[in-house]
């Protein structure tokens, strides 16, 4: 029985297989409508989420299965002091597979060591969010037709953005990826990714504070939110915040086939005026999230 806790739990061959399955689901949804008949997914969300939880639930319903679970810790026995270990042991008796979000880092790992059914990490604090990374990889593959030979720019909060860290780790296993890291000095990529992943694997990367200068060379722009609370003083935040807002004006210098991604939710880092630009892919990303989760549920339940 396998679980998905970290994106690196999957080989690139397994990721390719999931992407291929997701593409087949998109092309032939009817073939999959009854695949999970009689199966139950438990969504154990110890902290709130909109997209991830609904995406898992929609995925299971579209596979013909059922969903049980809770959407906040206060409506579970955790509020009575029950441990994660006991909760998953109990839920393993009711469900065939569990998707778990938890504010504490490593909680899904603990769950996977105790549960008798597969566990999917649906986000554990600032640590891992592997199904978002799978979503991002499916989106890149569908929009660009490949996962190799790409120039990808990550922009905004690269220090605390777990989706950025996971996607860099996942892409580091593909060929000829050039990484452009666009952030203020305060929010640079942490050393454990820069040194342990990029430098250790001798990957091609550059760091810059200027989005305008980096934009013309990119095939993909992965935007993230620059949060005010990450800055030591408000003056720095005010000085920097506008330079990381993507507008139609800034996009004039970008490639015509640029793919603009964002893990969402956004606040103001992508102007709504960009939404109608054909290069905006962030809502396709949301849809892709459901399909890749369908593929993942099938894989972990060992259903063809």
């Amino acid at each position: 029985m396998k679980s998905l806790i970290d994106i690196l739990d999957l080989t690139t061959a397994e990721i390719d297989e999931l992407i291929s399955k997701a593409n087949d689901i998109i092309d032939h949804p009817d073939r999959y409508a009854e695949k999970c008949r009689g199966k139950k997914l438990a969504t154990l969300f110890f902290e709130p989420s909109t997209r991830t939880r609904l995406s898992f639930e929609a995925a299971m319903y579209e596979l013909g299965g059922h969903v049980i679970g809770f959407s906040e810790a206060s409506s579970s026995s955790t509020s009575k002091g029950e441990s994660v270990q006991d909760t998953v042991r109990a839920v393993s008796c009711y469900a065939d597979i569990i998707a778990m979000r938890h504010p504490k880092e490593g909680a899904p790992k603990v769950a996977s060591m105790k549960a008798s059914v597969p566990i999917i990490n649906a986000g554990d604090g600032g640590h891992n969010h592997p199904t978002q990374t799978l979503t991002d990889l499916l989106t890149i593959q569908r929009e660009k037709g490949r996962l190799n030979d790409l120039r990808i720019g990550f922009c905004g909060d690269l220090q605390f953005g777990r989706t950025v860290h996971s996607l860099i780790s996942a892409l580091s296993r593909y060929h000829n990826i050039h990484f452009t890291l666009i952030s203020p000095a305060e929010l640079k990529l942490p050393d454990y990714i820069k040194v342990d992943v990029l430098q250790k694997k001798k990957l091609d990367f550059e760091e810059t504070a200027k989005l305008d200068q980096a934009l013309p060379n990119l095939d993909i722009l992965y935007m993230t939110r620059v949060q005010k609370e990450r800055f030591f003083n408000e003056a720095d935040y005010i000085r920097l915040k506008d330079s990381y807002i993507l507008t139609p004006e800034k996009l004039k210098n970008a490639k015509s086939d640029l793919c603009i991604m964002h893990p969402l939710p956004r606040v103001n880092e992508i102007s709504c005026a960009v939404d109608d630009d054909p290069r905006a892919c962030y809502f396709h990303q949301v849809l892709n999230g459901k399909f890749i989760r369908m593929a993942l549920i099938l894989k972990l339940l060992e259903i063809d």
Partner: peptide
């Protein structure tokens, strides 16, 4: 932020991830 802070009966397990640098990480 680690789950071991709230689940206090969990064993604290560290794995050697880089023998050269002698780096251990919480599992």
């Amino acid at each position: 932020r680690c789950i071991t802070t709230t689940e206090q009966e969990l064993p604290h397990i560290f794995k050697l991830t880089d023998p050269e640098q002698r780096i251990y990480r919480c599992i």
